[in-house]
Computed example of a mutant assay.
Amino acid sequence: MISLDNLAEIDPMFRRSDVWRKFNVGQFFTADILGEIRSALTKPGSLRNLLLELLNGTSAAADLIPDLSGLMKDPSADGQTRRLALESLLSVPAYDLSTDFADLLAENSLTALETASKGLMERSAAAEAGSARSGRGVALFHL
């Protein structure tokens, strides 16, 4: 993690040749490096977005819900970063979109509204798929 952080500081565009690739990191995100991950998520740039991509669907994303939520709602973060944070959050079954959804609506910027809309569409699609399998309707959340 430290080497990646150093590389990102030396060459902020270190991912330019592989930004389109997807990686499988398996159990890379262990409890002992969560502090380093949190620290890297506070620094704008390619490393932060790479980590957000890698966190999607991992158990570590559940441990980082407050950090990911804050990043998704950060008006100073770029749109791609905010969307990647949302995707990581939505990959956590226990994540509750309702509070963040209300905060994004209150922000009322184009990026916040697009992020809220994407979150609602993703949760809605997942709820519809779940209700189709179970034969019951599902409430997304209460505002």
Rank of each mutant, 00 (worst) to 15 (best):
residue 109 S to C: 10
residue 13 M to S: 12
residue 133 R to N: 09
residue 78 D to Y: 12
residue 50 L to M: 08
residue 141 F to K: 01
residue 140 L to P: 13
residue 140 L to Y: 03
residue 4 L to S: 06
residue 135 G to Q: 14
residue 90 L to F: 06
residue 131 S to N: 06
residue 4 L to V: 00
residue 92 V to L: 05
residue 132 A to K: 15
residue 29 F to E: 08
residue 88 S to W: 09
residue 44 P to R: 05
residue 59 S to R: 10
residue 99 T to F: 06
residue 50 L to K: 04
residue 3 S to Q: 14
residue 98 S to K: 11
residue 59 S to V: 05
residue 97 L to R: 07
residue 107 E to M: 14
residue 134 S to R: 10
residue 48 R to D: 07
residue 63 D to H: 08
residue 46 S to R: 10
residue 83 R to Q: 05
residue 106 A to Y: 13
residue 94 A to Y: 01
residue 43 K to F: 02
residue 130 G to S: 14
residue 35 G to C: 05
residue 78 D to K: 06
residue 67 D to W: 05
residue 6 N to F: 11
residue 108 N to D: 15
residue 118 K to T: 11
residue 111 T to I: 12
residue 54 L to P: 04
residue 103 D to L: 02
residue 143 L to C: 03
residue 134 S to Q: 03
residue 129 A to C: 02
residue 115 T to K: 03
residue 65 I to L: 04
residue 67 D to P: 04
residue 2 I to S: 09
residue 49 N to W: 12
residue 33 I to N: 15
residue 122 E to I: 13
residue 72 M to C: 15
residue 114 E to N: 12
residue 118 K to H: 13
residue 121 M to W: 07
residue 64 L to H: 00
residue 39 S to G: 00
residue 91 S to L: 00
residue 95 Y to P: 00
residue 114 E to K: 11
residue 102 A to S: 04
residue 130 G to M: 12
residue 126 A to F: 00
residue 16 R to F: 07
residue 115 T to R: 04
residue 38 R to M: 01
